[in-house]
Simulated scan of single mutants.
Amino acid sequence: MTDLLSSLENTTVPEIAPSRRISGRVAGLFEALQGHFGTQAADVLELSFEGIRGDYHAGLTRKSGGREPWYPRGTEMRNERQLSLVAPDELAVIAGGLGIDEVKAEWIGANMTVEGIPFLSMLPPRTLLFFEGGVTLKVDGQNAPCKFAGKALAENTGAADETAMSLEFVRVAKRLRGLVAWVEKPGVVKTDEKMEVRIPEQWYYPG
């Protein structure tokens, strides 16, 4: 197949990395049921095709914002950001970079902390997360850090200069902010539940 692809443009096709599987664990669950960004710890998450039932980010669709400059702000679009997943080791790196003791998942609106997956934030789009209870999430991509989350972090840590902290968070948390995902198969996820990550084939588009 690689040789056939090469003949299309008479050039070398980039290496294709095969799919693979990694095992992990749900270390913590959080939900935003108070009508705002911040999350609170939960023992379980009830997931429908709209996301977490009653959560701030639930919905089959959402309004576009600054992340989608190709649409007028407020355009209704598919909600691919139903859940936010982070890794404790990456949060620790962010905290170190900001010179603070810790970054709690709920301070930046995360719904799930995941352990056992190296470089969680670098999992590629289309990665599938299979939970032992039957739920499946599909990764949309990295959750780019924003000043909104940075401001919430600054407020929770009592930063002397909230504006400076929020801007620094955007810089420090790049590639470490975790992932956003949507529900492919609904059900219930529990704390300490085992999960399997299935990474699809990967390649760089040539040119």
Rank of each mutant, 00 (worst) to 15 (best):
V26H: 00
R21V: 11
G54S: 13
V13A: 08
A42D: 09
Q40G: 10
F49K: 11
V13H: 05
A42S: 15
R20S: 10
F37L: 12
L29A: 08
G51L: 02
G38N: 12
R62W: 05
L33H: 03
S64T: 02
E46T: 00
G65S: 11
F49N: 10
A27Y: 02
G28S: 09
D43K: 07
G35H: 15
F30N: 00
S19V: 14
E68V: 02
I22Q: 01
S48D: 12
G35N: 08
T39L: 06
D43H: 12
Q34E: 15
L47K: 00
V13T: 13
G35R: 12
G59C: 15
E15F: 05
A17D: 09
I52L: 11
G51P: 07
V26A: 05
R53H: 05
Q34P: 00
R53Q: 10
I52Y: 05
H57M: 08
F37M: 04
K63E: 13
G66W: 03
A32I: 01
G54W: 13
G38L: 04
G66S: 14
G38Y: 07
E31Y: 04
T11S: 15
G66Y: 05
A27L: 08
L33Q: 03
P14R: 07
L33R: 06
R53A: 03
R20Y: 09
L45R: 10
R21W: 02
G66C: 01
T12K: 06
T39S: 04
A41R: 14
G38Q: 15
I16P: 07
A58C: 08
Q34A: 06
E50F: 10
G24Q: 03
H36Y: 11
A42N: 14
A32E: 01
E46L: 14
V44C: 05
L47A: 02
E15L: 03
L45Q: 03
S64Y: 04
Q40Y: 13
T11D: 15
D43L: 10
L45Y: 13
L29V: 11
T39N: 08
G59T: 05
R67F: 05
H57P: 01
G65Y: 00
R62N: 10
A41P: 15
A41M: 09
G24R: 08
P18Q: 14
G59D: 09
G24A: 14
E31F: 10
S19F: 11
E15W: 06
L33D: 01
R62A: 06
G38S: 07
G38I: 03
T12Q: 05
G35T: 06
S48N: 02
D43W: 05
L47T: 01
G24K: 13
P14F: 04
G65V: 00
A32H: 08
T61N: 14
Y56K: 14
D55T: 03
I22F: 02
I52F: 07
Y56G: 02
G35C: 15
L60Q: 12
L33K: 11
F30S: 04
P18K: 06
I16D: 09
Q34F: 13
L47Q: 00
K63M: 08
R25N: 05
G54P: 12
Q40S: 01
N10Q: 11
D55E: 08
E31W: 12
A58I: 10
K63F: 03
S48Q: 01
S23K: 13
R20W: 03
